[in-house]
């Protein structure tokens, strides 16, 4: 994470002075964007840079569902299965994806291309059912639209970091 420090330091200019704890979560997010996950050495770097206890970083890490300690597939498909999406077929969509990808929810395909998981309400219920593909929302998906999506992703160049920005 060391190469990110100058960029993270710059965030301080709009923050109250001497409140560096504020940088923990932005830093973890930035590291994950950069590497695709948060490695041991990233935690070491963060602890050293901010001079905070390691346990604080570990606690923050374990609190949030978006932060991960291991890489995901190139394409991370997160199916929203909360109330409104389920009312529009999210469960069928998930079952279809499991079948098409040959993996269970929570798993990554052997070729490392796809990770499939569920997520709680994404704040896009008007476009139910919604799948978050890496950072982007795909809304109002039918089973056919999901097939088209898989096709599209199969032909697309994978993002620089797995599960990350294209």
């Amino acid at each position: 994470m060391k190469h990110l420090i100058p960029e993270l330091e710059a965030l301080k200019r709009r923050l109250p002075p001497h409140q560096d704890g504020v940088l923990v979560l932005p830093a973890l997010r930035r590291i994950q964007e950069d590497r695709g996950f948060i490695a041991d050495e990233d935690i070491d770097g963060l602890v050293e840079w901010l001079g905070i206890p390691r346990i604080q970083v570990e606690e923050v890490l374990s609190f949030y569902s978006m932060l991960r300690r291991a890489p995901v597939g190139a394409w991370h498909l997160q199916v929203c299965h909360n109330v409104s999406c389920s009312m529009h077929g999210a469960e069928r969509l998930l079952a279809h994806l499991e079948e098409r990808l040959g993996i269970a929810c929570g798993e990554t395909t052997a070729d490392g291309r796809f990770t499939l998981s569920t997520v709680e309400c994404l704040g896009a219920c008007g476009g139910a059912p919604v799948v978050r593909v890496n950072e982007a929302y795909r809304e109002a998906l039918s089973v056919e639209a999901v097939d088209a999506l898989l096709e599209e992703l199969a032909g697309a160049a994978p993002p620089d970091t797995p599960g990350g920005w294209v």
Binding site: L11, R14, L15, Q19, D20, G21, V22, L23, V24, L25, P26, L28, R29, I52, Q56, E59, V60, F63, Y64, S65, M66, L67, V119, E120
Partner: peptide
């Protein structure tokens, strides 16, 4: 300062949200 959460519903609760900003 625009502060991005990281996926925790409870952080919408105001005091939890403050803890999240403080980095705990």
């Amino acid at each position: 300062f625009v502060f991005r959460g990281a996926g925790a519903y409870v952080c919408g609760e105001a005091s939890s949200l403050l803890g999240s900003i403080e980095g705990s």
